[in-house]
């Protein structure tokens, strides 16, 4: 189980569009499969083959499927059951992980770290805060997932429901909104106000914020391209004869 835990950190190492996490999934299971099928090389090869098949989930929650797959193999479940389990579990593991980790936990900790940084904490405190807090949650989730899968096997749905990961993500929503507000307040009263120009920068930033709020992800490329173009424009204008430079 320890070896599988360590190997689970590499589960996305050979990400591809056909089997997605398949290769990494089989690699993480290998120590356990080797032990189970020590006497039977053909059975080992068949097991590796079924676990290199298509699999996809959130990487931090893949341990749930790894643990449960090992349990099923140990119980001697037939190939069809193993396949059906993996097919059924990847959807919930993917969507729960995306909502909890990528859409809630990571932005919340990143926002908090940025607030701390712009409030004046040095580089060491800001980055240590991010790494320690973020990975406390990250590692707890990985450890919990592998153990839950291993102990519950194909009945792991009950564990996932009882853990309330979706509800936790929901509860992090207001936290993220407060932190987002904090960051905007800190930046507005700090660097944007300090730049002067009669509130021009605060006004521009507010307009940008409203654009993002209204348009969602579609606004991202415009913001990035707009910023690069603005910087380039400053360079061009300053290089003109008699320009601002």
């Amino acid at each position: 189980m320890g070896a599988t835990f360590l190997r689970s950190f590499l589960v996305q190492g050979a990400w591809n569009y056909h089997t997605m996490l398949g290769t990494g999934f089989a690699f993480a299971l290998l120590p356990g499969l080797r032990r189970l099928y020590r006497q039977d090389p053909d059975a080992l090869e068949a097991a590796i083959r079924r676990h290199t098949e298509h699999f996809n989930a959130h990487p931090y929650l893949t341990g749930v499927a790894l643990g449960a797959a090992l349990r099923l193999e140990q119980e001697g479940a037939d190939e069809g059951t193993v396949r059906r389990f993996k097919t059924a579990v990847r959807g919930p593991l993917g969507s729960l992980g995306d909502r909890l980790v990528w859409a809630s936990w990571l932005p919340a900790v990143a926002l908090a770290s940025l607030v701390i940084y712009w409030l004046g904490a040095g580089w060491a405190w800001s980055s240590a805060f991010f790494l320690v807090v973020y990975n406390a949650g990250h590692l707890a989730l990985r450890v919990w997932g592998l153990r839950a899968g291993w102990s519950a096997g194909r009945e792991v749905a009950g564990r996932l429901r009882a853990a309330g990961l979706g509800e936790l993500a929901e509860r992090l929503g207001p936290v993220g909104a407060v932190l987002s507000g904090l960051l905007c307040g800190v930046l507005g009263a700090g660097p944007l106000a300090d730049a002067g120009d009669g509130g021009l920068w605060v006004a521009l930033a507010s307009a940008g914020f409203v654009l993002g709020l209204a348009a969602g992800h579609r606004a991202w490329r415009a913001a990035a391209v707009g910023t690069v173009v603005a910087v380039a424009a400053v360079v061009v204008v300053s290089s003109l004869p008699g320009g601002a430079g």
């Binding site: 059906r84 389990f85 059924a88 579990v89 959807g91 919930p92 749905a157 429901r161």
Partner: peptide, 14 residues
């Protein structure tokens, strides 16, 4: 026919 699979699929329905 399969209760344990139904439980897993239903988890994603939020």
């Amino acid at each position: 026919e399969s209760a344990w699979e139904q439980e897993l699929y239903a988890l994603a329905a939020t």
